[in-house]
Structures are given as C-alpha cells and as structure tokens.
C-alpha cells in the first residue's frame, strides 16, 4: 500500500485507509480512484498528488537582482499594513491600540478605488503570475538572506496561492455549482480556503485548530 500527498495542501491519501468521508473504501488503490476524484481538503485534481509521504520541495537555481526601492504604498496597501499592525497589537493584548489601527485600516480600505472591470479570470492570471514569478523571486531573496521568517510566510503563501489557483480553475469550469450547498471557510491565520461540508480539525497549511476559521456568509 502506498501514500500520495496533495502538492497543494499536503493532504495525504493512504491507500490502506481509503477516504471514508467521500465513500472511498479502505484498501482502494490510487489508480482505482475515480479520475475525477478530488482532494477532500482543497479540491485539487488527482494529478496534483505526488507519490510518497514527504512534502516535495522545489529547488530554485536562478536569482534576479532587484535594486529598486519600494514604491509608495497604495491606499489598499496602507490598509493591509494597518490591519497587520492591529493584529500585532491584539497579540500584545493592547486592545485600544489595535482598535485605532483597525480604524485606520477601514479608512484606507474605503479610500481604495474599486477595481474596474473585475473578473475571476484576472484573478487567475494574477495568481499564475505569483506562482511563476513573484513567489519564486521572493523565495530566492529569503533563501539568500537566510530570512526564515520571510520563508515561513512564503511557504504558507505559496500553498494558499496554489489552492486559489486550483479553486479558480475549477470555478471557471463549474461556475457557482462549485460552492452550491457547500460551506466556504477561510483560515484567519494563513488564508487557506476550504469548500465543503466536513471542515478539517486543523488547517492543512498552517495547522491551527479550526476555530480560527471564518465561515463566509452570503451577502
């Protein structure tokens, strides 16, 4: 019996155990799983799985030098910076300061111009760009600087971004039936998106218990 690991979220399919939640009996071999079987955690297709129990680490060999200074932050980026600092202050049990930063975050979010001609297809393009370039370059920079904090954020972001890509790809084909009669949750720590009705106990990406997830409601 072998195991197969989802390259997106790390879910392990163990042939010995099957996947009783979605009606796959114990001892079901990988090649006997239906071709349209999906990862029960993140919905990835079968081909996203790798044989073996260990996480596959990709090796980067190229590196691009960037010596441009960061540009000024947009209103939305300021909002993100403020809501990040609000979180930091919550952790420090500083409620008053956290509330002030949350107010600033709301202000800047409201200041941000809505996107014109928004489309799910644009999200898919941008997610692709992150996977092909932005995450690769950031990973290189973090590795070169031995910055393990940045590396941690990037490991999570890379997984969540790939899961977004898988979700957006399926949404393109299935449309709203993708989430029909299903709950949608977001991990408040890493951004993992769960679609389904059997919320895992822990986030498959950052491992926090599931009370850290937010249920997304309509409207």
């Amino acid at each position: 019996m072998r195991v197969y690991t989802c390259s997106l979220c790390g879910f392990v399919y163990d042939e010995a155990k099957g996947s009783p939640e979605d009606g796959i009996a114990q001892g079901t071999l990988w090649n006997r799983l239906p071709e349209d079987w999906e990862c029960p955690l993140c919905g990835a297709a079968k081909h996203e799985f790798d044989e073996g129990g260990d996480e596959i680490e990709t090796v980067r060999t190229f590196s691009v030098v960037s010596d441009t200074l960061p540009e000024a932050k947009s209103a939305l980026e300021k909002s993100i910076l403020c809501s990040n600092l609000a979180r930091g202050l919550e952790k420090q049990y500083k409620a008053e300061e956290a509330a002030l930063f949350a107010r600033l975050a709301d202000f800047f979010k409201a200041q941000s111009e809505p996107a014109d001609a928004p489309a799910f297809a644009h999200l898919l393009e941008q997610v692709d760009l992150d996977i092909r370039e932005n995450l690769v370059l950031a990973n290189d920079a973090a590795a070169e600087a031995k910055d393990r904090g940045a590396k941690r954020a990037l490991v999570w972001a890379e997984k969540v971004t790939k899961i977004q890509k898988s979700i957006l790809g399926r949404y393109e084909n299935e449309g709203d039936s993708l989430i029909e009669d299903k709950e949608v949750h977001v991990c408040s720590i890493c951004g993992f998106i769960y679609i389904g009705n059997a919320l895992p106990d822990r986030c498959p990406i950052c491992k926090v218990p599931n009370w850290k997830f937010d249920l997304i409601k309509a409207g």
Binding site: I80, A153, Q164, I216
Partner: peptide
C-alpha cells in the same frame, strides 16, 4: 478570495 488575499498580504507585509 478577498479575505484570503488580505491575510496573505498582512503576513507578507509583516515579514
């Protein structure tokens, strides 16, 4: 997706 991107972005700006 809006929320997921916000959470990743917060972590990225933090780092």
């Amino acid at each position: 997706l809006e929320m997921s991107n916000r959470i990743m972005a917060e972590d990225i700006v933090r780092e």
